[in-house]
Design a protein around this nucleic acid. Structure first.
Lengths: 149, 149
DNA sequence: TACTAGATTAGAACCATTATTACTTGATAG
DNA sequence: CTATCAAGTAATAATGGTTCTAATCTAGTA
């Protein structure tokens, strides 16, 4: 993760206008971490910018995706989530509550996957993503009560 | 992939009613292969069952998922796709046209991933899925014209 | 053949996302 | 400091995949 100023500079360099809404969204993503959905970003940022619209949230998230600062995470079936594009990590998703846990696996293992030649499938490989499925701690302990969705 | 009769028997064993619509959907999945969306299944099956409703398609796909015969594939951004749950394979998704290509990687490599101990993350690993991203043949050759959304 | 639990249908509802349009503003140049 | 305008924002409508609902129908059984 880089500081806010670095992101702001990057925007300036590319002629992207800096508005209070955008900066607030940047800050939100940096502060809360995790894998927020557009809804969650909206909830958080609209506390300080009550007129914020969803379009702005979506536009900004798209902008950040295009800048390579954020990655879309397709994990939940019907909702897009966003991940500050820090150093590479993989996701473990609980099959019951859909909680997303960042996981670091051996860098070598991922690199090995990305070396695979998929030419036989007429496919130019760019990136390999591993998604682990299973049970998070709370859901694995049935007495616990914080499974959701 | 198993024959239709095996699937029918499995339904009977579990007290699941067999209707013409369900059987037609089973057949559709087995014949057309690939990773159809609910929409595609509907289009195909409604040719023979013109009164078919989407609810039936979704219900049946959910039923098959619960039976373990089908797996939901979360790959395209916001549309669910379904994969006959045959022997294990991984997916390569074109980042431009979203075409999904089945890919077989060394079984050992996947098995190794599933052996990883995620206990440090308080996570009980059940399955590892690898998704490759890149360009399919058509999209890698810019002169070709069959890239689609 | 009649019964009934469960399946199907049509259509409305839902919800995340995208598009549209009018209004507003950040960044620049004078 | 102000004027300018390309670009951004807000409000709201539209879209599209999925789920729900209520009424009707039917597969499997007695």
């Amino acid at each position: 993760m880089q500081p806010l100023t670095a992101l702001i500079d990057k925007c300036r360099d590319r002629g992207v206008k800096l508005t209070p809404q955008r900066i607030a969204i940047f800050e939100c993503l940096m502060q809360q971490g995790g894998h927020p959905s557009a809804e969650e970003v909206y909830q958080e940022v609209s506390r300080r910018h009550p007129t914020l619209s969803f379009a702005t949230v979506y536009n900004t998230l798209q902008l950040l995706t295009d800048l390579g600062e954020v990655r879309e995470v397709i994990v939940d079936e019907l909702r897009r989530r966003y991940d500050l594009n820090t150093d590479s990590h993989q996701h473990a998703v609980c099959r019951l509550c859909h909680r997303i846990v960042d996981v670091r696996v051996g860098a070598g293992q991922v690199a090995a996957l990305e070396q695979i030649d998929l030419g036989a499938y007429d496919f130019q490989l760019e990136r390999a993503t591993i998604q682990f499925t299973g049970l998070c701690g709370s859901c694995a302990r049935p007495s616990s009560e914080d499974a959701d969705t």
